[in-house]
């Protein structure tokens, strides 16, 4: 069983993980949606077709998606230091988390937009809608259930990423599992941190599925 000290530590680590998750999740969504929209709209045959811009954004997204996360953390440490002032702790960990998750989420947004019925977009054009109105009133509301599923997938991925960030001193449940559980041969700590992570994943997935189903009127 866990000692009292370990229990408070577990609570602290959980709060740290939730903090990392909340902050990086929020910024990933804020950055990823416009990026996904740009990826989609600049593609061939779309409203803002621009093959040069599309290729540039696509390349950046693919590069960042290809770098294994654990390496990304180390690679962008100088940037993290510039932004946060340190490379250790949960706030510092959000920088690689955001950079790692945004391209991933942007691709999910792009896919969600691609699924929107072209006929509905054509109807909006026939009514004299401008590009902004088509994005705001057609693409986003019509794709919202898929985007929400994308947010769920991204948050679950971020839990995994945040655990990895723990390895290099990011704090949170991953950090606790590695430093106090694995490295100190403390099996109860190892298991209980894993269990809390598991609960988090199940809860987020459940909530995400529930909301997506609720807003989907198709």
């Amino acid at each position: 069983m866990l000692e009292y000290r370990e229990l408070t530590q577990l609570l602290e680590a959980t709060i740290e993980t939730l903090y990392m998750l909340g902050l990086s999740g929020l910024l990933t969504v804020i950055l990823g949606i416009p990026l996904g929209i740009m990826l989609f709209l600049t593609d061939k045959g779309q409203l803002l077709e621009n093959s040069t811009l599309n290729r540039i954004i696509g390349l950046i997204v693919n590069v960042f998606r290809s770098i294994p996360f654990i390496i990304l953390i180390v690679l962008i440490m100088p940037l993290t230091r510039v932004i946060v002032g340190t490379t250790i702790g949960p706030t510092a960990a959000t920088v690689p988390l955001i950079i790692g998750a945004t391209p991933f989420f942007a691709r999910l947004v792009e896919t969600a937009l691609r699924e929107v019925n072209k006929g509905v977009v054509e109807a909006a054009i026939s009514m004299g809608a401008n590009v902004f109105q088509i994005i705001w009133k057609v693409y986003l509301p019509e794709a919202l259930p898929s985007i929400l599923s994308g947010i769920t997938v991204t948050l679950v991925a971020l839990i995994g990423y945040s655990a990895m960030a723990g390895v290099v001193g990011g704090g949170g449940l991953g950090n606790m599992a590695i430093v106090y559980g694995y490295q100190m041969y403390n099996t109860p700590v190892m298991l209980s941190t894993t269990f809390v992570i598991l609960l988090l994943v199940i809860f987020i997935q459940f909530l995400g599925d529930f909301l997506a189903r609720k807003i989907d009127k198709k």
Binding site: G119, V120, E122, A123, S126, G128, N130, P141, I215
Partner: peptide
């Protein structure tokens, strides 16, 4: 865009917003 606002259109597949 203004001219299109004065030309209504209906479609075989209705093309309504599902949301």
């Amino acid at each position: 865009r203004l001219a299109r606002q004065k030309i209504g259109m209906i479609f075989q597949n209705f093309n309504l917003l599902s949301s």
